[in-house]
């Protein structure tokens, strides 16, 4: 059986079965301290709902926005986030790591 924590790929399948538009974000590379390992998935619905995670909550907001854009253009996008010392409120990883996230539309 699967655990009680929702699985992003299953959620993605359900959204698509309902005729909704969605994208899949995946951690493809990490450097230094990062909370989620390579391969971690986050499914994003066109309205901004999401399932799964690509960080400890630090960059999810920005990834959701990028995913909504990708759903619109239909083209994959590679995102990169790192530590942001100069602008403390900028989107970044507080843990000092760097992460690359591939966002792909489901077509």
């Amino acid at each position: 059986m699967t655990g009680a924590v929702p699985d992003p790929l299953n959620q993605l399948s359900r959204w698509l079965a309902d005729g909704k538009k969605a994208a899949l974000a995946t951690v493809i590379a990490t450097w230094g301290s990062c909370p989620r390992p390579v391969g971690s998935h986050m499914a994003v619905l066109e309205n901004g709902d999401f399932s799964g995670s690509v960080s400890g909550g630090c960059i999810e907001g920005a990834v959701v926005e990028a995913a909504q854009e990708v759903i619109g253009t239909g083209r994959p996008k590679l995102l990169e986030y790192g530590v942001s010392n100069e602008v403390a409120w900028e989107v970044g990883l507080a843990c000092g790591g760097r992460v690359q996230v591939l966002v792909e539309p489901i077509t």
Binding site: L9, N10, S13, L16, P105, I106, T107
Partner: peptide
């Protein structure tokens, strides 16, 4: 990712 590819991945995980 194509929708049929996603279905393939989800099926294969089972």
């Amino acid at each position: 990712m194509r929708q049929d590819f996603l279905r393939l991945v989800v099926d294969r995980r089972h």
